[in-house]
Design a protein around this nucleic acid. Structure first.
Lengths: 191, 191
DNA sequence: CGCGGGTTTGATGATGCTCAAGCCCGGTGG
DNA sequence: CCACCGGGCTTGAGCATCATCAAACCCGCG
């Protein structure tokens, strides 16, 4: 139930078995069916989610009703609406499952208590955030300087595991163009 | 010399005067002239920079020689190439001063020692990173769903202080379009 | 006065979007 | 076993947005 989580944490800090036991006591396991919401736009994000199994995504919906995917999260990734979570205010993102999934959830109160009980987790969280920021910067940078085709190529190289489990139109949505454009890019490349 | 830094830190955690003294001992002050580089593409980012006075920017240069601005940093902001800094590997960003500036620099070794000596800084850094991630997500989300005009409007509202100190063509670069497009947006709105 | 950085304007063109139709394929139910 | 349905992908025609390139303008400063 906690294999992936503990493996993930132990790549960044080293926990004793006591600490592991203490830590896991804060999490709650939850199963999600494909298409099930974890968080809906306008709700307060009560929990962080760590994906033990399956695949989730976060996205916004614009005034035309079009979805814009902010993040995919597969095994070993965290996902949530961070603003909504820390502020405990209604958020703007929707999160749902793209496959039947199993997640570990952590409330804000438990999150803070966990940091007090297992201070090493401060460091783990910081490293996680560092990497997140670096990846975000990289994404912004690519969105500023790449063409649609370059973005697509980079994505397939950087995230083959996501690429193989997600419908094309969602990859287009993540990269910031339409499914038709993506289809034409693919057609051009295989000819 | 450390007013802005300490004020900034104390909005997030509460330091004793001893801790303040310990903390500031790790920083080095440095003056930068307008147009002076703090970091050049391909160099290893040896220091984080905290802006006490002035205004810096980070950007990449694409194969056509066009600059794409990732970040502006004015008084009270941090700036660096995080990947390059933590990995101590050559980076892809260039950082320079847009005005005569005064910054406080912190090396990786000092950064880590500071976290050991003043553990409260772990929390400060974590809060900083949280906010950074939230802002990054917001920026990605806008870049996916907004038109050029919407991006411009949102920027002027969110960052009037930057807007008033930076040439228009750099705002265009930050937002992901050309100075000509920005000029036309402005012309349309004032008519 | 002339120079340089910044901004504007116009003509033209490329990139990617919209809308609509059709196809492919796996799943479901008769 | 076949018919149908729905999700996903493709294709085409026309269009909107924004980029490009070139020229001119503006203005503060040496």
């Amino acid at each position: 139930m906690f294999e992936i989580l503990l493996k993930n944490i132990n790549t960044k800090v080293t926990l004793t078995t006591d600490e592991e036991a203490s830590l896991t006591s804060f999490f709650h396991s939850k199963k999600l069916r494909k298409r099930q919401y974890f968080l809906q736009e306008g709700d307060v994000c009560k929990h962080l989610a760590f994906v033990e199994k399956g695949l989730l995504r976060s996205y916004t919906i614009d005034e035309k009703g079009i979805e814009h995917i902010l993040q995919f999260a597969l095994e070993g990734w965290w996902i949530s609406d961070l603003y909504s979570f820390y502020a405990q205010q209604p958020g703007t993102y929707t999160i749902d499952a793209l496959e039947d999934s199993e997640i570990l959830t952590l409330s804000l109160a438990d999150f803070e208590e966990m940091l007090l009980k297992v201070p090493k987790m401060e460091r783990y969280i910081r490293i996680l955030m560092q990497n997140n920021i670096i990846a975000s910067n990289n994404r912004v940078s690519c969105s500023l300087s790449f063409t649609a085709e370059q973005k697509y190529l980079k994505f397939t190289e950087a995230f083959p595991d996501i690429f193989n489990r997600v419908p094309q139109h969602m990859i287009a949505s993540f990269l910031g163009f339409t499914k038709e454009t993506l289809s034409r890019i693919r057609a051009k490349r295989t000819s």
